[in-house]
């Protein structure tokens, strides 16, 4: 397959058939990974730079592993706040990277649209690894792959996304992907954490967990950033957990075979109860991490092909 664009900046620009093709390829990489084999020829001679302006362990590691399993030279750059205070701008950084002839640039930034800005200025294919409150496309793809492996399809499923929707790029990318693939999506949370206009994305809004989870096939809990509490959007962690924390009692409203997901890292006892997070049959949180590597391999593979004509 080829991507419709040279970059992966968000789910918004993908057609359902692109999503399906990426998931199919990722599925094959998931099997390859489980068999312990690698395909180091795919990105041999290519350079992948992980450019992280925001702390991340799992996403960066996942991209690093994906790149290495496909044979790329992988470089991690964590741009600390100190170099920002030295006055180097995002575009200075872009110019530096361009001079290094990097092929694939994985970017995480606290500001929405930062990868899009970089994409205008660099020759590399840019992959958005999370920008502000905008998108986190590989997370949505890995969530979709995890769901598809268990449920066989995305079409016709009911997915409840719970918690801090307003500040979540994971929620946005998941809503775009799942609605495009024919799932029914509900968002569940207190009104202060539901973003304005979200109903225009084809989701329904619920402020009560029992109501939002009723009959759901998939329940996704989102990380609650602690700064949201200091910002006064919710009064306390215990109040949040009481009404919106995913525990056994609330999960009982979902279908008996409903899967529990979380993009990590988890705040146990805030948005999710440990008993649920570690549940042997319901929780697929660890499998999400595994699928993350496979999805990123697929994305890197396809973008490298898209970038090189006749490859």
């Amino acid at each position: 397959m080829r991507m419709p664009t040279r970059h992966l900046l968000g789910i918004e620009s993908l057609h359902p058939r692109d999503i399906s093709a990426l998931l199919d390829l990722a599925e094959s990489y998931a099997l390859l990974n489980r068999s312990g084999k690698t395909r180091r020829d795919v990105l041999r001679g290519r350079t992948l730079i992980n450019l992280f302006f925001e702390d991340s362990t799992r996403t960066r590691t996942s991209f690093e592993l994906a790149g290495k399993r496909l044979g790329a030279d992988v470089i991690n750059m964590s741009v600390s706040t100190s170099s920002v205070s030295k006055g180097e701008t995002l575009l200075d950084t872009a110019a530096t990277l361009n001079a290094m002839n990097c092929d694939l640039l994985v970017v995480r930034h606290k500001s929405s649209g930062a990868p899009a800005l970089l994409a205008q200025k660099v020759d590399a294919a840019v992959i958005n690894a999370g920008d502000g409150m905008h998108e986190h496309p590989t997370q949505a793809l890995l969530d979709a792959l995890t769901i598809r492996r268990h449920k066989g399809t995305l079409e016709g499923l009911t997915v409840a996304i719970c918690g801090d929707i307003a500040h979540s790029r994971v929620a946005r990318s998941n809503i775009l992907l799942l609605t495009a693939m024919g799932s029914t999506v509900r968002v569940v949370g207190p009104p202060t954490l539901i973003p304005s206009g979200i109903e225009q994305f084809g989701v329904t809004i619920h402020h009560d967990m029992a109501d939002g989870l009723r009959g759901a096939d998939i329940v996704m809990a989102l990380r609650l950033q602690t700064e949201r509490m200091s910002g006064g959007l919710i009064p306390s962690a215990r109040e949040f957990f009481t009404f919106y924390g995913l525990d056994a009692a609330k999960l009982a409203h979902a279908r008996p075979d409903a899967l529990v997901m979380h993009p990590g890292p988890m705040n146990r006892g805030v948005e999710i109860d440990s008993q649920i997070a570690d549940h042997a049959t319901r929780s697929v949180i660890r499998e999400q991490v595994e699928m993350g590597v496979a999805v990123r391999m697929a994305v890197l593979d396809v973008l490298a092909r898209t970038a090189t004509p006749n490859a």
Partner: peptide
């Protein structure tokens, strides 16, 4: 509104 939400602004 919907646009700001979509763009994460």
């Amino acid at each position: 509104g919907a646009r700001a939400t979509l763009m994460g602004l």
